[in-house]
């Protein structure tokens, strides 16, 4: 039972819930009588799709898609460079602790490592893509949310127009009134 739970339910739980939310939203859009309820169902449907996209971009053990602050990046670059490593070992008796350099030492090690690019950019130091969450779905969904609220606004404006015409937001009553006006 526990094995089944951990191999089938937990790894796919986001996807199961995305299916459930999509069904809830779709059911509300089809069967609810009130137009505002239909719109809430539409918003739930929309968030289900966004949930699907964002869940696809998750990587296990990855951090948020923002680079570390610059001086961390530098010390990381030094750690990979042999010259800087040598320098660090030489001066380790003066340092606060292993791996922690004072500012002057860091600057010197930086120069010795031959890193002369502006802004302290670690040239040739490739970022491991597994370290960061996939940013592409985030970008797509960020704009989708804001556009979604703008279109929700349009739908609500149309609802107000319908309410002035028919005096109700119930779909069945609106349909009866339309039928009566067609016969009359």
């Amino acid at each position: 039972m526990r094995e089944f739970f951990e191999s089938y339910i937990v790894p796919y739980f986001n996807f199961w819930v995305y299916v459930i939310l999509m069904m809830i939203g779709m059911f509300a859009m089809i069967t609810k009588n009130n137009l505002i309820k239909k719109l809430i169902g539409m918003s739930i449907f929309q968030t289900a799709i966004i949930l699907f996209y964002v869940s696809l971009g998750v990587k296990d053990g990855a951090t948020i898609p923002i680079y570390f602050h610059e001086h961390k990046e530098e010390s990381h670059a030094e750690g990979t460079s042999e010259d800087a490593h040598h320098k660090e070992e030489e001066s380790s008796h003066e340092s606060v602790g292993p791996g922690i350099l004072t500012d002057a030492e860091r600057k010197q090690a930086h120069l010795e490592a031959g890193d002369h690019t502006p802004h302290g950019e670690a040239a040739g130091h490739a970022v491991n893509p597994d370290e960061f969450t996939n940013p592409l779905p985030h970008v797509l969904m960020l704009t989708a949310i804001v556009v979604g609220v703008a279109t929700l606004g349009v739908a609500l404006a149309v609802c107000q127009l319908i309410y002035r015409e028919f005096g109700t937001l119930e779909e069945s009553e609106i349909l009866t009134q339309i039928k009566q006006s067609n016969h009359g």
Binding site: K32, N33, L156, E170
Partner: peptide, 20 residues
């Protein structure tokens, strides 16, 4: 924040009751 406010603004101007 904003979408809840939009919904409430519409509910304020229309009917608060729903049949279902």
């Amino acid at each position: 924040g904003v979408s809840a406010v939009f919904l409430i603004a519409t509910v304020f101007n229309t009917n608060r009751r729903s049949s279902d």
